[in-house]
Design a protein around this nucleic acid. Structure first.
Lengths: 239, 239
DNA sequence: CGAGGTCTTGAAGACGATCAACAAACGTGG
DNA sequence: CCACGTTTGTTGATCGTCTTCAAGACCTCG
């Protein structure tokens, strides 16, 4: 159940058998969640953290005026709200973009584990820091890239993350999000997503049909995006 | 030297004398930095983390095309690159917006401290999580608020953070950033910052002259921004 | 007193929003 | 398996926000 999560952590630093066992013991699941469901409610104080096992989810903020903005996407192997362990109140919701499979882990058990295993604590901390690095890249995208650049950057980031847990290869990956949802990711209207998607397809750099994305020319795509994968921290960085 | 940092942490959870002493022992400084200087270089692997004691600094990303985007601002009492302790390579630079005073703390000493003091570790972890929460709010701003809303949100956020460490009161605070720098914060051109600032002034909600900002009508400003301070986690949340 | 940065203003144009309508795909029940 | 309603994708036209370029005014500090 935790294989993808372990795989991601191990891309950065070895994960001793003992720490792995601790994690296995405190995680409960799996459980299925329907498409569109709110996995964790905005404003709640969940008392447990959720691990995404399968599917695509997003951190969603709904503004007073009704518009929505995703502040990041979660892929299988992500601890979607590990931060709620210390932050308590969710300043955003976690929404399942398609059908998802999840597992849970109580904050009490995390507290116990982090009190006894300093290295595990740092590994989990690092994982939340990478979330922060991803957020920073999104701020850069929203502030200084046009919609085509944002879309290209999103594709690059998503591909690299999926590949790291073995869910993408040969430039192909699944991206089960509607154009309306992509609009809430990029901070633009649905209509504009549609037009930008057409522009991206017309460039010949990618094929993007339904939820199937195929990258034909990685270098050009990364160039359009100004993408540099370093921030994803998928190379060894012992903590 | 660490008073402001302690004050911020204590707004969330008590900080035992022992943990406080540990921090005092491992922090070296202060040191002065000139306006405009890069406190931590983008792409570097610093080997130590920096605490901002006085002044205003920002996390800055420079894109291949030469444009710049700040992904957040740091105020006195902030550990500006605590994340570099685990992240190692800086995916962004830290730039002094005005003259600053800083102190440093080696990663080796942080590793030692986090191995021995689990509660301190969680306090530091929480502090980096709040950084993440701030980043999420910035993504929301960039994606779904117009420039006037972003500016209002920035003012609200900045005021609440400064007030928490005793550097702002009665709606007044110092914001020593040029309009060009504000543009790099909000992701808009300098010209547009100028016009939006005039619009904000004309609304009568704030006075904003040079670096002196005075908020006359908090409720209207917060309304324009859609500001909800919960994400700053300045209420007690024991870790 | 002069020089460089910062602020301000105007005009033209690009990018993206909004509104409206229709087409295509999907899921559900008959 | 088809009929139907719903969601998703596509297109056109118009409008508003923000960018860019250019120039002039204002500071501030040597």
């Amino acid at each position: 159940m935790l294989e993808l999560f372990f795989r991601k952590l191990e891309a950065r630093d070895s994960l001793p058998r003992e720490e792995r066992e601790v994690l296995r013991e405190i995680v409960r699941g799996p459980r299925q969640v329907a498409a569109g469901a709110e996995i964790v409610r905005q404003g709640s104080d969940p008392g447990e953290s959720t691990l995404l096992l399968a599917g695509l989810a997003g951190r969603s903020v709904t503004l007073p005026n009704g518009t929505r903005q995703f502040t990041s996407l979660n892929i299988p192997g992500d601890f979607v709200d590990l931060h709620s362990f210390l932050l308590r109140r969710m300043d955003h919701g976690i929404v399942a973009l398609g059908p998802c499979s999840i597992a849970k882990c109580s904050h009490a058990s995390l507290r116990e584990a982090t009190s006894r295993y300093p290295h595990l604590t740092r590994s989990l901390w690092l994982d939340t820091l990478v979330d922060g690095a991803i957020h920073r890249q999104w701020v850069v995208s929203m502030g200084r890239r046009d919609t085509l650049g944002r879309l290209a950057h999103l594709a690059c980031e998503h591909y690299v993350r999926l590949e790291a847990v073995g869910l993408a290869a040969a430039g192909r990956f699944d991206f089960p999000a509607s154009q309306a949802q992509i609009g809430d990711v990029l901070g633009v209207s649905t209509v504009h997503v549609n037009r930008t998607l057409q522009e991206l397809r017309a460039s010949g750099v990618v094929t993007w049909e339904r939820s199937q994305v195929t990258i034909h020319d990685w270098n050009r795509l990364a160039g359009m995006a100004g993408f540099d994968p370093g921030y994803l921290q998928l190379a060894p960085t012992p903590v």
